[in-house]
């Protein structure tokens, strides 16, 4: 039997998912002591853990080279794609929010607002739903810099505690969407390996 291949987003989601797997009772020593390896068998080889960057988790699952994946809702919202999004794992919680320089009104005036963000698609579709034209500028590093340097009127970014914003004189003026870790499944794998996948999903759901 081919192992069930599950791609985990490297970093915190990976640690939380491995924690969940251990709670279920899978021996995850191979993942804990992975060294440089990227494909790691657990549960007596019945499951193969693949470690990848968030965007790549979606790509691998979409193409069916991985059956399942654990990835943040933020990446799903930005990337889109066709796969089943079956379960909210509850960890990796944060939110998308719109923030501006403290005290500066974002809405009002006729000018088109400029938004600096790592998530141009999320930003665009959010303001599109409000019927508002914006200019989205993609920033790769610290997005907080853009309004401070007066490149943009505001930012759309992931906010967890808001400390970084506060320290830089920014404040959240609107929450856009809640974020947490999701289990995604390839549409064909779901059908051809329904039994195995549903079993694992139930275990994950009941131990989260």
């Amino acid at each position: 039997m081919k192992p069930l291949r599950i791609a985990l987003t490297k970093g915190r989601l990976e640690k939380d998912t491995v924690g969940l797997f251990e709670k279920i009772g899978f021996d995850c020593t191979s993942v804990r002591q992975k060294g440089r390896k990227l494909i790691l068998p657990i549960d007596d080889g019945r499951i193969e853990v693949v470690l990848a960057k968030a965007n790549d988790v979606i790509t691998y699952v979409e193409h069916g080279v991985c059956d399942m994946g654990v990835v943040g809702k933020d990446t799903i919202m930005e990337m889109g794609g066709s796969f089943f999004e079956l379960c909210d794992l509850g960890f990796g919680r944060c939110r998308f929010a719109l923030a501006t320089k403290k005290g500066s009104p974002f809405y009002g005036g006729y000018g088109v607002k400029t938004i600096a963000t790592k998530y141009p698609n999320v930003s665009r579709s959010y303001f599109e739903s409000k019927g508002m034209d914006i200019e989205a500028i993609k920033i790769e590093g610290s997005v907080e810099l853009a309004p401070l340097l007066e490149l943009s009127d505001g930012i759309v970014d992931i906010v967890e505690t808001g400390t970084t914003l506060k320290e830089n004189g920014l404040e959240v003026i609107e929450d856009i969407a809640p974020i947490s870790a999701r289990v995604i499944v390839n549409t064909v794998s779901m059908k051809l390996r329904q039994g195995e996948i549903e079993k694992l999903l139930n275990l994950m759901e009941n131990n989260k």
């Binding site: 066709s82 999004e85 079956l86 909210d88 999701r182 499944v185």
Partner: peptide
């Protein structure tokens, strides 16, 4: 209705 269809097709149970 389209939003509901979209969630059903993607088996997005939570949403």
């Amino acid at each position: 209705a389209e939003q509901i269809r979209y969630y059903i097709v993607n088996k997005n149970y939570p949403a």
